[in-house]
Design a protein around this nucleic acid. Sequence first.
RNA 1: GCGCCUCUAGCUCAAUGGCAGAGCAACGGACUCUUAAUCCGCAGGUUCUGGGUUCGAAUCCCAGGGGGCGCACCA
Length: 468
Amino acid sequence: MTIPYHFDVTRTAASLSEEFAHLEPGTETTQVVAVAGRVMLRRVQGKLAFATLQDSSGRVQLFAPSASTPRFDDFAALSIGDWVGVTGEVMTTRRGELSVRVDTWELLAATRRSFPDKWHGLADVDTRYRQRYLDLWVSEEARATALTRARVLSLTRRWLEDRGFVEVETPVFHPIPGGATARPFTTHHQALDIDLYLRIAPELYLKRLVVGGLERVFELARVFRNEGLSTRHNPEFTMLELYQAYADYTDVMALVEELVAHLAIEVCGTTVLTYDGRALDLTPPWRRATMVELIEEHTGVRVSLATPLEELRRVCETHGVVVETAWGPGKLVLELYEKTTEAQLWGPVFVCDYPQEVSPLARDHRSEPGMVERFEAIVAGRELANAFSELADPDEQRRRFAEQAAQRAGGDAEAMVVDEDYLRALEYGLPPTGGLGIGMDRLVMLLTGTTTIRDVILFPTLRPEQTE
RNA sequence: GCGCCUCUAGCUCAAUGGCAGAGCAACGGACUCUUAAUCCGCAGGUUCUGGGUUCGAAUCCCAGGGGGCGCACCA
């Protein structure tokens, strides 16, 4: 039997069950359709065969009487997992099951391997991740999650474009890793004979574009961080970054809560969700609270950057935070927040105003000395977004880079590297700008109710299989 | 990187120191309204790998490998 090069599909399974939902048992519609997909179930009864065809939209039954089905014996012998194309009349059986009668059919691909158990599917998560092509057939949730992810990205693009944002693509290879503090992957370009880094964030290039006059830009950027794996971390993941000229971080807060609420309504039909067994109300406006307020709520201690260092260290130690002598007040406050408070937050909440010491790309707070205008959005106990009023002053940026360089010299492999070209761009003038990063994988987790990032990434990073 | 758990047929799982098994899938057969069809038959194994203890190891011990979870790391 030769495999055709082409098959004309006229209908999906889902469109048939939608259009013909209410046919009486024993109906013949005279409507001839062509469907294609994989045989996922098969019930042969001698001179009559039933098969369940599954395509990317859903399932529909195939009805094959030996009297009218060409090559009936071959059809009845199809294996679970074989691809077929079928044309025939839409009908219902005596029992009322919507079916396509097999008037003509073609084998489109045979499976040489047995499909997973038709009832239990795949339980081994390793197999599900490594052989996602099977998981997608066997697990309704896997398919639904993949489609939801696509929809979230598409809706995000449309929502931003409706607000005048332009989608751009910036380099994945960076001569200098920048825009975040994280360990990069390195690679080498042979012809140029230089080391390059896979980007840890697109931030510095996107802000160059704002300097270039693209006043509202965004990128759905695959970024790469050479760090640990967990249910919330994959070495490559997708980050939405956007920059809006003439805006500050309060404008960005409004944007974040509106975008997330919009996606929740489109995907879940509501902004009132349950995640991991807990209620989560994404209805705007979200709570806004400063970091020091939240620390006080959770520890009972009011600290500030003006608190004497010795006292800050003592507060940290009484709360089980191991401190290093090189840390300044900003780092101490941040550590105190992360160790005592962040894990307790459920949100949604905008945690506002971070120490300048730990935020080298954010602009000084307009009224809080030593602080910058930065927030993180904590949603369902996870950091979902990070944003700030962007630092535009090249002299101040140079000073911040120098601080980072000193930390790097002191052994901090994640401290930033001075980027002279970025400073040159700032010297041409960056207008007041609000910037944002959202972890799209975590957002999809939220909207699909999944609790491991590997469920929202089709091919998560795994150790390679031993091939021997 | 550390700790705990786990790995048996293509898939889902039994066998808890005493003959490696079942269901589904595959393969052969019966069956003209099934719905995880049913019935009969057949075949399927480096029990993750290597060592050890034992009369005897899927089972106990050691080492290694894969995976999961937690910790650490992590804008």
